[in-house]
């Protein structure tokens, strides 16, 4: 049966069996297009499934009286569905699922809290609502995925440039540079570095020991890291 005739018959009858026959007849288009998008971290089978679903939906929407071929009509639909899938699902770098879910939960809770109370919640308040440790909320708020090629500073150095190569001489030199950089910190800042990076305490635990809030530690930590980064960069340049 001719394509035009086949679709005209289906439009008239809406017969499920006929629709299935049409889908089977054009399934090769889904396969061809799926193959064009392989090699991006998603299996062919998954792409074929997405393409097939788009094909099924497309059969119902195709109007043979418009004068275009079904292949021409369905190709952009299938490509669009596949691209949407890539956009939504197939990131090359994944945050751990637990962190990713927690991040969404933290964001949703913070939004709800803001609209209910007219102010942003603290990490402790979010932690209480969600029922997770405050430390986890802070981690979830601070984590993100960045490209190693992304500029890490205004000088155009990428994160990749800043990753040290494993070399023992470099290590010694860096230890020396870090030692000198730490000397630029005041006593409270050094105490924080010692708790957080020496004893590897959590931000909450560090806050308790220092008698301040966890948010204060979080802010201070960021400030210290910026300060250290600046000093280290300067010593590398020298």
């Amino acid at each position: 049966m001719e394509e035009r005739e086949l679709f005209a018959q289906y439009r008239k009858s809406k017969d499920r069996e006929l629709r299935n026959r049409i889908v089977e007849q054009y399934l090769y288009i889904a396969s061809m297009i799926a193959k064009k998008f392989v090699g991006r971290g998603v299996e062919y089978d998954d792409l074929f499934q997405i393409a097939s679903l788009a094909l099924i939906k497309g059969v119902d929407r195709f109007d043979e009286t418009k004068g275009i071929k079904f292949a021409t009509f369905i190709t952009p639909t299938i490509a669009g569905e596949i691209k949407n899938y890539f956009r939504d699902r197939s990131r090359l770098i994944h945050l751990p699922r637990r962190i990713s879910e927690l991040r969404q939960s933290v964001k949703r809770t913070a939004d709800e809290f803001l609209s209910a109370n007219g102010r942003n919640p603290t990490a402790a308040e979010i932690a209480k609502i969600i029922g997770v440790p405050e430390e986890d909320v802070v981690s979830a708020m601070e984590c993100s995925v960045v490209s190693l090629d992304r500029p890490a500073d205004e000088d155009g150095m990428s994160y990749y440039d800043l990753i040290p190569a494993p070399d023992s001489f470099d290590e010694l030199e860096q230890r020396d540079a870090v030692g000198r950089a730490l000397a630029c910190l005041d006593e409270e800042e050094r105490e924080l570095v010692s708790f957080r990076f020496g004893q590897e305490l959590s931000q909450t635990e560090t806050a308790k020991r220092m008698g301040v809030s966890q948010m204060y530690i979080s802010r201070m930590e960021r400030k210290i890291l910026e300060k250290l980064r600046g000093t280290l960069r300067k010593s590398v340049a020298d």
Binding site: I29, M32, I33, K36, K69, A71, T72, F73, T75, P76, A79, G80
Partner: peptide
């Protein structure tokens, strides 16, 4: 051919 139809339609979409 159908293959060419698909190639052209895909180009048009992207």
């Amino acid at each position: 051919t159908v293959e060419e139809e698909i190639s052209a339609a895909l180009l048009g979409a992207l």
